[in-house]
Each structure stands twice: as structure tokens, then as C-alpha cells.
Amino acid sequence: MKKGLIVCGTGVATSTVVLGKVKEYLTKEDLISQVELHQANINDAHSRSDDYAFIVSTTIVPDDWKENVIDGVPLLTGIGTEEVYLEIRNKLV
């Protein structure tokens, strides 16, 4: 099963909101059964970044890490959400 990671600076507030949004989207698209979602703060997540099909981040990520990272801030502002969902979809199917 593919794995997805949601990260933010503290691992508690914005990633919780983003996790809810991503779950909602994946459920709507019937993709939720194909992915295991995890949540972490940026420091804890760094060493395990290769394990994930995608990472949605609301914080600054290290340079060596950028490949699978999707900017999650649009899911907080409501501006540009469809692009984020599309990127997640592209990493899964």
C-alpha cells in the first residue's frame, strides 16, 4: 500500500487541518483504501521521507527532500486547492 505523509512545523495544528482535507478528497475519489496516511512534524519526518509516495507540507522542507513534496498551504487558504488535489492524485494513480 502506498503511503502519504502530512507535515507541518509542530505536527499538530495545520497538518491536522490538511490531513482532514486530504482524507475528504481521497474518500470522495474512492482512493482512500489505497493509501495509508501519516502525520508528523518536520523534524521527525525528515529521516523517513523516501517511504512516502507523496508528502503534503505546510512548512519549509529541506532542499534534499523536495521531490515528493506538495505545498499544502492552499488547503489552508482555500486558494488553489484543486491543483494540490491533482498533484496528490498524480502521485497515486
Binding site: 507541518c8 512545523g9 509542530t10 499538530v12 495544528a13 495545520t14 518536520i42 512548512t59 519549509i60 498551504v73 489552508l76 487558504t77 482555500g78 486558494i79
Partner: peptide, 24 residues
């Protein structure tokens, strides 16, 4: 400290908003 390393400004319309917070 956290605002320096992990800023919390959000470009919402029509006013910018910030949501500072730290570990619980």
C-alpha cells in the same frame, strides 16, 4: 522562535492572516 523558523502568515483574501501556534 517558531515564527522565525516556521512562519505562519497566510495569503488569504482580502486581508493577510497569521496563525501563530506552538507545541501543545
Amino acid at each position: 522562535k517558531r515564527e522565525q523558523g516556521f512562519p505562519t502568515g497566510l495569503p488569504v483574501q482580502p486581508y493577510g492572516v497569521a496563525v501563530p501556534h506552538v507545541d501543545s
